[in-house]
Each structure stands twice: as C-alpha cells, then as structure tokens.
Design a protein around this nucleic acid. Structure first.
Length: 480
RNA sequence: CGGGGCGUGGCUCAGCCUGGUAGAGCACUCGGUUCGGGACCGAGGGGUCGGAGGUUCAAAUCCUCUCGCCCCGACCA
C-alpha cells in the first residue's frame, strides 16, 4: 500500500510556491485583464479530463446539457431578494451597446438561477413535465477584490446545474445526489479527500434554504470549498412564478436546486498533491500519464528511438496517454525535472542498457521509486502502476486531512489550536450566526461545514462557544 | 477598500541612498562536443529601466501623480 509522505510547506512560502507551480508547469498565465487568467493548453487539458468525468456522471443520472445567455437584465436579477443582496457587490454591468446607453443595464452572469428560473416558468406546466434536470458548462464573472489563479478569478469556468422538482423531498434527494457525485469526483478522480456536509446558515448560498458543500484541506492547512449543492426550496419558484398543476389538480410551485463546481478544483488539485518539485497529477486527470524519455547515446536514433516509438504505440493502444519526449535539444536530466514539474505520474526511461535487457526503467512521480519493467507485458504493468499511484495519492490526501484534524471542547482551547493554520478544528457547536461571526473575528476561522459522517453530540455536550447544549460537531478552519 | 512591499531584456534580480546615458545569472539563436538527474565550449540576438508629468546641462536613480502586481486584513466557488 501507499507510503505516506508529509507534504507540508512553510505557510510563508506556500503562496509563492503555488503561483510558481501554476506558471512554471504552464497551467495558466496572467493576462492583461485584471483578475483574469489565461488557462494554457496544459491546464485546459486537465480541465477537459475533469469535465468529461463530471459530464459522464451527470448524464448517467439523467441530466442533460443546454446553454443559457451570458447577460441577465437587471430586473431579473432583482427578483429574488436574498439573491440580489448576496451577489450585488460582485456583479459586472454592461451599460452600453455600441455607442448607445442601454435602457436597462445587463448583468454579466455571476450565476444563472434567474435566467433558468425565467425559462423554467415558461416550460413547466404540469407535474408530468417534472423533474427538469439541466446542466450547463459556462463561464461566469464575479468582481472579486482579491484574485488568485484558479482559486479565485474574475471570470471562471464551471458547470452549473439547475433542476426543478415536484416535491421538496425530490429536490433534497437531488441536492444530496449531486453532492455525492462531487465527492466521488473529488476523491476518486482528483484523489482529493473531502468532507461532505451541511453549511451553516451564514455560509449558505444567497437565496437557498440549505447549502451543502465538499471541503478539502490544502497542503498549508487551509480549507477549500471545492463544490456546493443548494436546496433552493420554493424561493426562486415563487420569485419567478414557476408553477405546475399537481397530481391532485392544485397549482403549486416547483422545488428547485442548483449546484456547481469550477476550475477552482484545479487549484485544489495543485495544492492537494504538489510538492517541492512541482505538480503531481493523479493519472485520471493527467494529460500525459506516462512520459517516455529516450537516453540519447551512440546511435540511439536507430536503436533506442524506434523502440520508444513502438512502446508509445503499444501503450496508446492500451488507452494510456503517452508523451514521447524525443527532443534532442534537452538532456535526459533536464527532461526528468521538466516532466516532474508538470506532474506526469509515471516516467519511462529507455537507454542502450535497457534495450539489451529488453526492459525499461520506470520512475513514479508521487514517491521516489524507480524500477525496471520488462518490455513484454509493459502496458499491463503500466496500467497497474497508474492505478497504484491514483490510489496512493488519494490515500495520502485522506491521511493528511485526518492528521490535520483535531478536536477541542472549549473556546480557549479552540483559539489556542487556531494559531497558525492547523487544518480542521472540530468542536461541539450550537448554531448561532452571531457567535460564528465572533469566532471569525477572533480567530479568522470559519465554520466550513457539518459533515454527514460526523456523530451527533451526546446529550449534555456543551457548545464550545456559548456553553448551551450543542447541536452538532462543527468543522472550523481558515479557508481560501 | 485599509496597512505594508515591489515594478529594470522571457524569468530571477543587482544598480537607485551619494544623478553622468544599463548589468549579472538563467532562458533564447547559431556551430560543435555531449546526454542514465536540470551538460560544456565558442559566437550571437534582445531592455531606455510600469506610465505620465516635473526638477536638472544631464534622470533607472530626485519630486508629484497614476497604473499594475504581491503579502496582511474586510468580501467570495
């Protein structure tokens, strides 16, 4: 099984490390547009692999894709009171079309509940039309004050699902089903261990009844909200007049949900697995799962290189994504460092010595393990190694999260343990928005969520802050 | 938006205090020798110092304004 390696980096340098990896691995670059980044081909290839994993799962659960407009008339955005209030500070506005001033300003979508709501009101008449399960892949814009590549950018790419249901229970089932889907993708595709649970009232989405999230823990001990799924209740249905005639002939409002994950996941990926040599990609989202580096010695172009091509073809035929790095301008050592920086999970070296023995030399990116592999049956061995790496990264992430989760019972102990960036601190808690705000003021820590897997406090357990009987065990952390 | 820091070839930075007309390492181009953990030798190309204004015979250097980036706070996927 996987060996567990600590990947903590100095918090002071962590941000620099992160930005360095993003740029040097050619994932993204700053653009002339403030707060906006260019996702470079290598970074986009990761996004495409991730998209496919998510999209396949959504389609398998009955969802379909569509595309809704980028611009939202101001009047639409104003319809749901809490929603407007929540998003107003972050909206970018279009005021002119060509040279003419618009009669009504257009918002560049920060999220699309209002346009989905508007269209659903037109499309839904009867209980027979339900459920409506539509997803869209799109860009959205939120005018953030502070930005950081992938984690928070002014414009970002995401997937947003918007569904309408006959009953609250159905809507809740959908909300939870999607959260489970996100957890599945985060853990089994990205190898990023997450806590799935319920957000507090003060952290929930503007306009939702309830918000659920998956929360990951980054290498510097800060939490990252990696995906959210909202039970919107009838709030938007009432604001947009989305009604249907029910089985009992009465006219009722639908129950809606919305949910999304974004390119932020790539930021999470980097900070979950990266080390001092750069990125480490789990095989499932690695644009190149294997890089083959020929050792250019003697007449290698006639001997080693053809064998490398043959191996590349064999691996590709087995469905493995392969890069054959036959550039002769760089030495093997340079290539090793380069592809490690870019996170390729497995490297295969082939030189004259290997050729004689009918073997290749392999090196794992996640741990410094090298091994000779016979060329016969190589595809199978590589497949197995990739699976091992995928599992090892996932296990390491889980272990890291568990080791950086501590439990305390009193506010003094809480404050003491929140010094620095310890990871998650779990406390008995009685829900109270004002107390939550005070905790944040005192310690910078926020209530990330209450995980489903967490037990209910036994009777008599006191809230660490108020001393009242505790409702739950809440997970606090400093976050991105 | 508040506090702090920084903008000099593609990258990292020196030079600024004590003005005199731009440097280093890496990267890049060409030739050659190399290549099992970021090779070496030789020859080259590339910047007017974030932007604007001012002081001065003379500004990367001094002054004013401005833009951008980074860090720390308040807001967020």
């Amino acid at each position: 099984m996987a060996e567990v390696t600590e990947i903590t980096k100095q918090s002071d340098d962590y941000s620099k490390w992160y930005l360095d990896v993003v740029r040097r691995a050619e994932l993204a670059d700053y653009s002339p547009v403030k707060g906006c980044m260019v996702i470079r081909p290598y970074g986009y290839a990761i996004w495409e692999l991730l998209q496919r994993e998510i999209d396949d799962r959504l389609k398998a659960t009955g969802h379909v894709n569509a595309y809704f407009p980028l611009f939202l008339p101001e009047s639409l955005l104003m319809k749901e009171a809490e929603h407007v209030e929540g998003f107003a500070p972050q909206v970018a506005w279009i005021t002119h079309g060509g040279t003419e001033k618009l009669e009504e300003r257009l918002a560049v979508r920060p999220t699309s509940e209002v346009i989905f709501g508007t269209m659903y009101a037109k499309w839904i008449q009867s209980w027979r039309d339900l459920p409506v399960l539509i997803n869209q892949w799109a860009n959205v814009v939120r005018w953030e004050k502070v930005t950081r590549p992938f984690l928070r950018t002014t414009e970002f790419l995401w997937q947003e699902g918007h569904t309408a249901h006959e009953t609250e229970q159905e809507a809740l089932d959908e909300t939870l089903k999607i959260l489970g889907l996100y957890k599945d993708v985060a853990e089994n595709v990205l190898g990023m261990s997450v806590l799935d649970g319920l957000k507090s009232e003060s952290e929930k989405f503007a306009g939702a009844d309830r918000t659920y999230s998956i929360e990951a823990l980054m290498g510097d001990g800060r939490a990252l909200q990696a995906g959210t799924s909202h039970l919107l209740g009838q709030n938007f249905a009432k604001a947009f007049d989305i009604t249907f005639q029910a089985r009992d002939k009465t006219l009722q409002h639908v129950w809606t949900t919305s949910w999304g994950v974004s390119t932020r996941l790539i930021g999470g990926l980097i900070m979950t697995h990266g080390d001092d040599n750069g990125l480490i990609l789990p095989p499932k989202v690695a644009p190149y799962q294997v890089v083959i580096v020929p050792i250019p010695k003697g007449n290698w172009q006639e001997t080693v290189l053809p064998k490398c091509r043959e191996i590349a073809d064999t691996l590709r035929a087995a469905g493995i994504r392969v890069m054959l790095d036959d550039r002769d301008a760089y030495t093997p050592g340079w290539k090793y460092a380069e592809w490690e920086l870019r996170g390729v999970p497995l490297r295969i070296e082939l030189g004259p010595r290997d050729l004689e023995k009918n073997q290749v030399f392999s090196a794992r990116r996640d741990i410094k393990a090298k091994a000779a592999l016979p060329i016969d049956g190589l595809a199978g061995a590589v497949r197995e190694l990739l699976d091992t790496i995928q599992a090892a990264l996932q296990a390491r992430s889980r272990t890291f999260r568990e080791e950086h989760t501590m439990r305390v019972d009193t506010y003094d102990a809480f404050k003491a343990s929140m010094d620095g960036r310890p990871g998650f601190v779990v406390v008995p808690w009685k829900h109270n928005a004002a107390n939550e705000a005070q905790v944040k003021t005192d310690t910078q820590a926020t209530l990330r969520n209450v995980p489903f897997g967490e037990a209910t406090p036994p009777a008599g357990t006191r809230c660490m802050f108020s001393g009242e009987p505790a409702d739950v065990y809440a997970y606090f952390a400093k976050s991105y």
